[in-house]
Design a binder for these strands. Structure first.
Lengths: 197, 197
DNA sequence: TGTACATCAGTGAACGCGCGTTCACTGATGTAC
DNA sequence: TGTACATCAGTGAACGCGCGTTCACTGATGTAC
């Protein structure tokens, strides 16, 4: 035997984390495999011991948000032991549409950082993106189930507001306008989540 | 004298139109100057007679939506001779969040096709994007002014819903889910636009 | 406990390719006479 | 009307560079004895 399987798994995780951060900040095409491997303290050649292609890594990196920062958020919002209340949606909205999230270029949700990159890549990459959206929508839907007439539709609207508000705020160079958009989206989302059906 | 100034202006317009379509479909980085010039029936070298860089063309191409398809939309929605009514917002929402717009990869609004491309480029490019958003928000705001308490905030929410709903619908590989998102965003936006304050 | 060995994660050079930009040149055009 | 000329939009080769992927090799590791 050579190295332990755990050794390889740790290296793989390091590559994924480096890729997640670099892709989040600079997009898919601006980041090279060499940059990712260097960020993980490795050299170019070893990449293909862990992934079949750059695009496969992209899909894995996008989805890794769910088990990383995403899991932390969900825990903080109170998604533990299946105990989801109307308050959960409010907490998630407050975190997602927060100034901190807007400023966090490394840690932000890939749905905000990478929509047009993802829309032009393989179905596998798009499926990873869809997994993130589905997790968010399911959380909203469960949270609203007991108070809203049409919880699923409301959940979809909340997701569109969260992603749309943040995508616009991220892209506008006038930071006052960006803040206006973020605040307006936040307040409207809280109103929908609070008002129920 | 060599060619007429009109000749050069027409060539420039052809390059911009070719760039708008190709960028819309494939993004900034996947499209080369050679591809754009070929689409405009020209060769690579002449590009720099018209633009200082690929990025300058990108900004111009993004903004060109406003005087092209965007102007048609605004006219159809009834933004002529300053005659903007509450109905105008509804018509704009119906067109923006329509299945036809979702399917129109060439003609779609660059706010949907290119958000993450734009967010990583120069301030000039971001300003072009902001011009599109501002036009949309202003139209919504004017349309709501007489019926809504806080017309500007409502207008920002509508813009976030329009862009967010379409960005998600464009990126999701499950087309049934994409349709659900589009419909939910459309109905919610119409409700906000119709309900007023 | 100590040594020989097989494995395979990681290395770094190489392959083939395309890119944005520059530049010397060409040739269609409008003007001057 | 016809011709010589200056202009500059458009051409296509070249420059310097970086990319994704492949591959022969290395050397740290865990195991067998």
């Amino acid at each position: 035997m050579s190295y332990s399987p755990e050794h390889k798994a740790r290296t793989r995780a390091r590559i994924i984390e480096a890729a997640r951060v670099l892709f989040n900040r600079h997009g898919f095409e601006s980041i090279s495999i060499e940059m990712i491997m260097a960020e993980a303290d490795l050299t170019r050649g070893g990449f293909y011991n862990h992934f079949r292609s750059k695009e496969e890594l992209f899909a894995v990196a996008v989805e890794s948000f769910l088990t990383g920062r995403g899991a932390t958020w969900r825990a903080e919002a109170g998604v533990d032991s299946g105990n989801i209340t109307p308050h959960t949606a409010g907490a998630m909205i407050a975190g997602y549409l927060s100034p901190e999230h807007l400023a966090d270029l490394d840690g932000q949700c890939p749905m905000i950082a990478l929509p047009s990159d993802v829309s032009r890549r393989s179905p596998d990459v798009q499926l990873a993106y869809q997994t993130l959206l589905t997790a968010m929508v399911d959380l909203f839907e469960t949270s609203l189930e007991n108070s809203a007439e049409d919880a699923r539709r409301q959940a979809l609207v909340l997701a569109a507001l969260c992603v749309g508000g943040m995508v616009l705020a991220r892209t506008l160079p006038d930071s006052a306008l960006a803040e206006d958009v973020r605040c307006a989206a936040h307040d409207a989302a809280q109103e929908i989540a609070g008002a129920g059906g």
